[in-house]
């Protein structure tokens, strides 16, 4: 359903992604692990053209887009099939929580005001913030903001959700509430690509774990394979620093 082929990306002379491919089935959750600077966030940002990859291609459903050759319109169509959740939430600060969820639905996807409002209310309920629709982001905690961020990305029925270290900016006690929502998103059958350092989440929730280092995929497999029987020494060395059993 989603097929990413041979992505290359350089910043000046520094090649940070050296031919990464990835395919994802409907509703599948893939977690990308790796040390800082391994290129995992850059890879994620290449998928929706926040960074322009030098070469490679991405196919979602029936649309194939080649990096470096895509037109503005193709990029727009592609982005509308994906949602993104950011490390620092990136909520629109001039909009309330509910408006944050509703605006992309109405503006980009042509929902009516009423449809959007109903779905926003359902989602607010689902993420445990039914009373918070009229709050501005500055009045919400980090965990609340991130849950709104997930609801905003999810509201438009994307084919896949991209998560860029969604819990990295949160106080430890708030991480749980966000991970709960992410589990619910998986339960709803939405495909996810998650860049994270939450090993517990990767182990429990993902269908597949990818370990990236120096711009390449070092190892890939089920959470059990990767966490319990890593084959590559670099994966072992990385996981040794976390005590996950």
């Amino acid at each position: 359903m989603i097929e990413v082929k041979d992505v290359h990306k350089s910043f000046n002379d520094n090649e940070v992604i050296k031919g990464v491919s990835l395919s994802l089935n409907e509703g599948e959750v893939v977690t990308i692990l790796g040390p800082s600077g391994s290129g995992k966030t850059t890879f994620l940002r290449c998928l929706n053209f926040l960074e322009i990859a030098d070469s490679g291609s991405i196919t979602i459903n029936d649309q194939k887009v080649t990096f470096g050759e895509a037109s503005v319109d193709e990029v727009l169509q592609l982005r509308r099939k994906m949602g993104m959740v950011f490390q620092n939430y990136a909520l629109f600060l001039n909009k309330t929580a509910k408006q944050n969820i509703m605006e992309p639905m109405i503006l980009v996807h042509g929902y009516s005001q009423q449809q959007a409002e109903e779905r926003a209310e359902t989602l607010l309920q689902a993420i445990g913030l039914p009373e918070h629709g009229n709050y501005y982001p500055s009045q919400l905690s980090g965990g609340q903001k991130q849950r709104i961020g997930i609801a905003r990305a999810l509201a438009v029925h994307p084919t896949v959700l991209l998560f860029d270290e969604p819990t990295a900016a949160l106080d430890p006690e708030l991480v749980g509430e966000v991970l709960k929502v992410m589990k619910a998103v998986k339960a709803a059958g939405v495909a996810m690509i998650v860049v994270t350092h939450e090993m517990q989440f990767a182990y429990e929730v993902s269908d597949r774990v990818i370990f990236m280092a120096d711009g390449v995929i070092v190892e890939e497999g089920s959470p059990q394979q990767i966490f319990e029987h890593p084959k590559e020494s670099r994966t072992q060395a990385f996981l040794d620093r976390f005590t996950v059993h």
């Binding site: 600060l93 001039n94 709050y135 905690s141 999810l154």
Partner: peptide, 24 residues
Amino acid sequence: NYSSRQMPIAATNPVMPVIEHPKT
């Protein structure tokens, strides 16, 4: 100035989320 609009911060309801996601 939207940021000066004041509202008390409400407590979070500890609900286990269930998300319905009908296909479009």
